[in-house]
């Protein structure tokens, strides 16, 4: 498996924000290429910090993160962009250019693959357009290619977000609370999409979730964070209610389950 891309390693990694808040502490973690990992923890536990350290949106204040053996933390400029090119990201609030068409939003995923003078004048090579269309086909909305992004439903917008990440042809996908602004039905569709893409393309996938039942249903490996520290790391099949109580530091309630929200 060592020749496959998408391996992530945290070595004694830590993040202390200005002001003293600890976002990550003594993190030692290894994620194998092609894994599907769900990260859980209460808000402020450091789930976003963990994801954002992988593509350098958040900088470590100690230790290091490696992607395929290359250290993320010291990279700047061109080197950092070369690394980010291989790491797709999906956001809770989708982050699309609302006034642009769907296909042009997906093409943003090709930015790092295309020379700057071309992207500035929207002169996308046919090769890259084909990749963008294939990405849209994979999330099942190729017919929306020329529609303005602002006219799509939430679930469709998140599919465009996923397609943009796929257009990068990434080794890793980071999904930061990808379903937190979606209704339960759409939530399951998007989670199934992520699982399917992980299976079909072997892209290492890290998903932050705050609903425990979703974590159990879709996760293969579950990582629990509390106050920036790793407190659980194990299979989704064997995770117990006891484990969740330890991660959250309290009894969990209906608020922590998506199914209960549907009532």
């Amino acid at each position: 498996m060592s020749d496959q891309r998408g391996r992530i390693r945290f070595i004694d990694a830590g993040v202390t924000y200005p002001g003293g808040t600890v976002g990550m502490k003594d993190m030692n973690l290894e994620i194998e290429p092609g894994e599907f990992v769900v990260i859980v923890g209460s808000s402020g536990a450091g789930k976003s910090t963990l994801l954002r350290a992988v593509n350098g949106l958040n900088r470590l204040t100690s230790g290091s993160v490696e992607v395929d053996g290359e250290t993320v933390s010291q990279r700047e400029g061109r080197e950092l962009r070369a690394l980010r090119k291989r790491v797709g990201m999906i956001f809770q609030d989708f982050r699309l250019v609302k006034r642009l068409s769907v296909i042009n939003n997906v093409l943003i995923g090709r930015l790092a693959h295309v020379p700057g003078w071309r992207t500035m004048f929207n002169l996308w090579p046919q090769h890259d357009r084909d990749i963008a269309i294939r990405a849209l086909e994979r999330v099942g909305i190729p017919e929306k290619a020329w529609v303005r992004a602002s006219t799509l439903s939430g679930g469709q917008q998140q599919r465009v977000g996923i397609a943009r990440a796929l257009a990068q042809e990434p080794a890793i996908i980071l999904a930061d609370e990808p379903v937190a602004s979606l209704d339960p039905v759409t939530t399951h569709q998007i989670m199934r999409d992520l699982v399917r893409i992980n299976r079909e393309l072997g892209i290492t996938t890290l998903v932050n979730l705050h609903f425990l039942d979703l974590a159990r249903e879709y996760g293969k490996r579950i990582i629990g964070l509390k106050h920036g520290e790793l407190v659980y790391d194990g299979s989704a099949k064997t995770v117990t209610d006891e484990d969740f109580r330890d991660i959250y530091g309290r009894e969990f309630t209906e608020d922590d389950l998506l199914e209960e929200q549907q009532e």
Binding site: K85, V87, F91, V97, L111, T119, M120, Q168
Partner: peptide
């Protein structure tokens, strides 16, 4: 600044961040 950050996250340059992330919001 969410969208500009997303453009940065795909490996976009400062100019690309402006063109795809910032300016469309203030056009």
């Amino acid at each position: 600044m969410g969208l500009p950050e997303a453009v940065r996250a795909v490996g976009g340059t400062w100019l690309e961040m402006l063109k795809f992330g910032a300016i469309p919001q203030a056009m």
